[in-house]
Simulated scan of single mutants.
Amino acid sequence: MTFIALDDEPLALVLVERLAREAPEWTLLKTFTDAAAAAGFLRENAVDLLLTDINMPDISGLDFVRQLADERPLIIFLTAYKEHALQGFDLDVVDYLVKPVRRDRFLHALDKAATLIRLQRRAAAGPAADDHFFVFSEYEEIRIVTADIRYVESMGDYVKIHLAGQPRPVVTLERLKNLFDKLEDKGFQRIHRSYLVRLAAIDGKQKNRVRVGNNWLPVGETYAPQLAKRLT
């Protein structure tokens, strides 16, 4: 598993490099003191985890993460300011480390991220059968029948799977793109960067949205042509 670190303080990056040597399953690909350079690296390279400071002169770590593409790596914030913790967790980050970082807390944060990545990779391996697959949710593996899926809603590194006959969606660690790759040939279409829908579950449509039951879902401009083609 791989990660990069972004911090405007070179000494903080030296500490990260030293601690990273104690986590053998992780590879620190590169460190950055400049946010623009880090963003460029993320656009060109697949990275599992980003460790970033929050208070930086050119951009805050919070804004940096918000500007990343949907398929962003997992995030761990590293900062000297505890008051940003709530905002950080609103972005579905893995952990929040306060400087000076203790060795045990750093390694624990990497362990948490590794667990999440292993679950993601397991889910991306594909369904066990054509008509169903399993996801990990609330400390158990839940069987999802493909024909029961009405639509899927992205929540960053998680998705909500809305099922027919169930009032509450199933929430699981997964990327919407990975789920679409598995379900596209089973009658599903991505209609928005945050939504994937089973075509047979669509009850109505308008120019920029579709209705599934009583729920109106947005249709993004990028996805509208392919949706129209598949609905004809």
Rank of each mutant, 00 (worst) to 15 (best):
L49N: 06
L50C: 09
L50Q: 03
L50A: 07
L50M: 09
L51F: 03
T52D: 13
T52K: 02
D53E: 12
D53N: 11
M56C: 02
M56K: 01
I59L: 13
L62K: 04
F64Q: 07
V65P: 00
R66Y: 00
L68A: 05
D70M: 03
P73L: 11
L74C: 00
L74Y: 12
L74E: 14
I76D: 12
F77A: 11
L78C: 15
T79L: 09
Y81D: 11
Y81R: 04
Y81W: 05
Y81G: 00
K82N: 15
A85N: 08
A85K: 07
L86A: 15
F89S: 06
L91M: 13
L91Q: 11
D92Q: 07
D92A: 13
V94I: 15
V94K: 02
Y96I: 14
V98H: 04
K99I: 10
K99V: 11
P100N: 13
R102H: 13
R105L: 10
L107M: 10
A109I: 10
L110W: 09
A113P: 01
L116R: 12
I117C: 02
Q120P: 02
R121D: 14
R121Q: 15
A123K: 00
A123Q: 08
A125M: 12
A125E: 15
P127E: 14
A128K: 10
A128D: 14
D130S: 14
H132Y: 14
F133I: 10
V135I: 13
Y139I: 03
V145H: 08
D148G: 10
D148S: 14
R150W: 00
R150Q: 13
E153N: 02
E153M: 01
E153L: 04
S154N: 01
D157L: 03
D157T: 11
Y158C: 04
Y158R: 05
H162M: 07
H162P: 00
A164Q: 14
R168P: 00
R168L: 11
P169E: 09
T172L: 07
L173K: 03
L173I: 12
L173Q: 04
L173G: 00
E174A: 10
R175M: 09
L176C: 03
L176G: 03
K177H: 06
N178L: 02
L179E: 05
K182C: 02
E184A: 15
D185H: 08
D185I: 05
D185V: 07
K186T: 06
K186C: 03
G187A: 05
I191H: 01
H192E: 10
R193W: 04
R193T: 02
S194F: 01
L196V: 02
